[in-house]
Amino acid sequence: MLINVTFWSYFRDHAGCSETVVELETGATLAKLHEIVCEQFPKLADARNSTLKAVGLEYESDDFVLSDGDEVSFFPPVQGG
């Protein structure tokens, strides 16, 4: 299955792009996607523990099971206000 990943804020600079597509086996979790993304974009691995992850418009935990076509966002801690 294919998962669309978008990077926000300085994660975009660390990745060198604003989005990518990752191919995963059916039933893969958000944690697996994060692991693969950190391998592909090593600068993002430094922020692994502080990375916020959303599927669509909702925050999801590492054990969230992804579906084909999911839109995933990875970003650093938010700073509004």
Partner: peptide
């Protein structure tokens, strides 16, 4: 409202 915003709303500043 403001405390929650600072935890959950995806806005960033440079």
């Amino acid at each position: 409202l403001i405390d929650e915003m600072k935890q959950k709303v995806p806005i960033w500043k440079k």
